[in-house]
Structures are given as structure tokens and as C-alpha cells.
Amino acid sequence: MDIQKWWVNDDIYCQRLTADYLEEATKMLETSFYPQENVCMVLGISEDLEAVRELRDLTNAAAKDGISVIAIDKKTNKVVGTAFNKIQVKNDPVFENFAKSWKSPRSKALVELMSEIDSLCNLFDYCQTDCLLELMFLGTTTEYRGKGIAKKLSEITFEIGTNLAKGVNARKSLDGTELPLGPRPKIISAIFATIATQKIGRRLGFEVVAEKFYNEMDFQGTKFSDVITNGSTKLTLEYKKL
């Protein structure tokens, strides 16, 4: 299977997520993203094995859409960054449907929060579209941050979405088999939870349509702003036309 590579620098490249890297990419979320990402950290996702297992079902489902991207260190062949992406269709609440069978209050809280932020501005109605591409779980391992990996993953995701919007079948299955083109997204959306990812949004021309401040949010009696001490103050819901 011929796999396109997008280079971040001489040592790190990005490619589509394939079956060979799915387990490692998922583990990267569990060891780097969930313990350190602002919202997941407050919710204690990494401390709850049931929550981790339930979210694995969600990311595995997203991977099947054929639009997720990973970053790899050429020297070690290790996954050092991920963008688990999902096609969203109007009136098809994928995340909520997953959460209906979940038992962990932490994974449920994460999906409920994502849905709450999405409800602050219904992007389907706001942008008059029936389909969007969500840049979902975007992150890098701790030692590889600050190298432009997350920005590159975001740029590639936008490129994939643009091709789909134009009618070019840019979906690539995990095993290389052909996936159908449709439905075709008209916008790319993201919930950015940190100053770093919000800066990426500014650089790539995303429009902020809603925001929610951490000092207004709590989980089981603990304010988000009391736990998040990296300078980030809010979540932003953002989009860009494809």
C-alpha cells in the first residue's frame, strides 16, 4: 500500500493512520493525551480504566472513517502525534449514541461536555451544511511538543477535508481497501482546549464561534480552573470552510 508522507522536519513525518499503527496511536492517547490534555486531566480519564476502554471504542470508530492522521519519528518508528478525526452528519449524534451504553461517569462527562460546547453554536445550521469534519483528538507526546507537529496534523486534516469537499475521495481505510466518498464535509470544526491549539486555530484561519471559560465549569464539585494551571482559560468552538 502506497502511503503519502508529509514531512514536519528531517526527522518527523506524518501519514494516514493505518492498521499497523492503530494500537500504538491509541496507546499514545492513553499515555500522553488523556493524562495531560486540559479537559481529560480534570475529568481524570487516565485514572479510570473503564473510561479509557470506552473512549477506545470511540477512537476506533473514528479511525474507520479513513481521515485520521499520525506523526512518526523516522529514527524510532514511534507514533509521536495523533489527529483522530471524525465525519459528523447532521441529526446523527455519534458521540451521544456511544455514551448511551457507557458506564464511566468520566467518559460520559467528556462526551456531554463536547456536546454542550457544540450546542453553543450549531455549526450545521450556522454554516448551512449537513456534514462536517471534526478535528477531534489532536495531541503529541510530551517530549515532541513545540516542534510544529500538531499544526502539521491540523493542516493535513484540512487538506483531506478540502479534497473531500471537492469530490476527491481522500478517505483511506486502515487496511487500504476503498471507502465510499460520501458524505462530503463542507467545513472543518474543532474544540480547542489549550492556548497552543487555539494559536494553531488562529494561524490556520479558523473562526471562533463560541467559547466557555474554565472558571465557569466544574466536575464533581471541582472547578476546572482550579486544576488547569498552564495558562489556558477557556474552550473554543471553531471552524473553517473547506
Score class of each variant (00 low, 15 high):
residue 96 E to Q: 13
residue 97 N to Y: 05
residue 97 N to M: 09
residue 99 A to G: 07
residue 100 K to W: 06
residue 100 K to M: 14
residue 101 S to Q: 12
residue 103 K to N: 14
residue 103 K to P: 01
residue 105 P to E: 14
residue 106 R to C: 05
residue 107 S to E: 12
residue 108 K to A: 10
residue 108 K to E: 10
residue 109 A to S: 13
residue 110 L to Y: 07
residue 111 V to F: 08
residue 111 V to M: 10
residue 111 V to H: 06
residue 113 L to R: 10
residue 114 M to Q: 11
residue 116 E to H: 13
residue 119 S to N: 12
residue 119 S to V: 08
residue 120 L to Q: 15
residue 120 L to G: 04
residue 121 C to E: 12
residue 122 N to Y: 09
residue 123 L to H: 04
residue 124 F to Y: 15
residue 124 F to S: 08
residue 124 F to V: 06
residue 125 D to I: 14
residue 126 Y to P: 09
residue 129 T to C: 15
residue 130 D to E: 15
residue 132 L to P: 02
residue 134 E to V: 10
residue 135 L to M: 10
residue 135 L to F: 01
residue 137 F to C: 01
residue 138 L to K: 04
residue 139 G to R: 02
residue 141 T to L: 03
residue 141 T to S: 12
residue 143 E to I: 08
residue 143 E to R: 05
residue 145 R to P: 03
residue 148 G to Y: 01
residue 149 I to F: 10
residue 149 I to D: 05
residue 149 I to E: 06
residue 153 L to H: 06
residue 154 S to G: 15
residue 155 E to Q: 14
residue 155 E to Y: 03
residue 156 I to A: 00
residue 156 I to V: 15
residue 157 T to V: 06
residue 157 T to A: 14
residue 158 F to E: 07
residue 158 F to S: 05
residue 161 G to K: 09
residue 162 T to D: 11
residue 163 N to F: 08
residue 163 N to H: 14
residue 164 L to T: 07
residue 165 A to N: 12
residue 166 K to Q: 15
residue 168 V to W: 14
residue 168 V to M: 14
residue 168 V to T: 13
residue 170 A to E: 06
residue 171 R to M: 06
residue 173 S to T: 00
residue 173 S to E: 00
residue 176 G to L: 09
residue 176 G to Q: 05
residue 177 T to C: 07
residue 177 T to Y: 07
residue 178 E to C: 00
